[in-house]
Amino acid sequence: MKRVGVFVCHCGTNIASVVDVKGVAEAARSFPGVVYATDYQYMCSDPGQELIRKAIKEHRLDRVVVASCSPRLHEPTFRRTCASAGVNPYLFEMANIREQCAWVHAKDKEGATRKAVDLVRAAVAKVCRNVPLSPGTISITKRALVIGAGIAGMQAALDIADAGYKVVLLDREPTIGGNMVKLDKTFPTLDCSA
């Protein structure tokens, strides 16, 4: 039997002012596989992550769903949280109830809450079918290519080179320098640009 924990984030008032977060957690408790569900102000904060770790231990959770912001933002964060509590980081899913729910349905609190519940249900359904995965490894060529040799390219190349790595600084023009070398003195210090 799967043992899923669902953690609903308020994101301060970002989510909680639109979505009924307690209602979402309550609804989640009835989903198949869910043995624990709760809500908290900032799930990504230290205490928030600690809350997840504690719940994993206390309720012997083997899968985790966090309903909060976009996975494009905090998926790596919560995967690490899971890993640190002994749950394979790929037995984790996120429900995006901030960017794709609270923030875009600010005037439709009921609709947003219904949607949040559906998104959590989908995440739970998915996580129940997740299997543990482990990353492979690849080697790294420790040499950088910088495309464009204006101010940005030269500065980046110098910094990387100063750290001891080889850099190729490439430019389509016959010279390095970019737009910068066309400039006269530069603000606010009026020193020369070369």
């Binding site: 976009s70 729910c101 875009v104 349905h105 439709d108 989908a122």
Partner: peptide, 27 residues
């Protein structure tokens, strides 16, 4: 798509663009 349309939906959120709540996104 995680890389474009889903990112676009996130961007809509960041910019607080409002749309009806009857869409369910699967990434």
């Amino acid at each position: 798509c995680h890389w474009c349309a889903y990112a676009g939906a996130d961007l809509a959120g960041l910019n607080r663009l409002q749309y009806p709540a009857n869409v369910r996104v699967i990434r």
